[in-house]
Amino acid sequence: MNDLKSLATYLNFPVAKLSLDQKEKILVWKEKDGKTLRGLISIAKYLSRNSSHHKQFTGESIEERAAIDQWLEYRLNNIDRAHQEKDTNAFIKDINTYLEDKVYFVGHQLSLADFLLYYGLHNLIRDLTFYEKQKYMHLSRWFDNVQHAENVRQTQTLIPFQKNILYTGSAH
């Protein structure tokens, strides 16, 4: 819930419209006219597409919007549902490789994909050792960059990273 709250704040929507359906354990966004949306992805997309925020956040082209959707699915299916360490290791490795030649997940600016992946990965990255952070250098670089956008991080704790190479022979 924290991530959608932050997203609403980031995009200047009233957080009060967000609630949790206790019975079904699903997030709900209620508009004044009674219109409701359910679930992380639909609410996130609804908010970003209705905001006056810069276009890049939602994706400028059809391809970019599709790529963002893909990463939202990825978060839901691979990150949120990972319970075992081996699942975690697999996607961390994937993401690290993916980010080697990219600053942001999609396009050349921060998008909804970065935003929600930052929230989705926060606890996991918080628990990494410095050695692991260095091992997943590209992921770390991306994460550190995103968390320094204060309007994205909001109340999340700032996670420390080392910019110097601490352990030799393990970079990349």
């Binding site: 600053v103 250098m137 670089r141 550190d144 956008a149 910019k163 110097n164």
Partner: peptide, 11 residues
């Protein structure tokens, strides 16, 4: 730039 997104700071 291996560990950095931009040259100085994060912006």
């Amino acid at each position: 730039l291996l560990t950095r997104t931009y040259l100085v700071g994060e912006r």
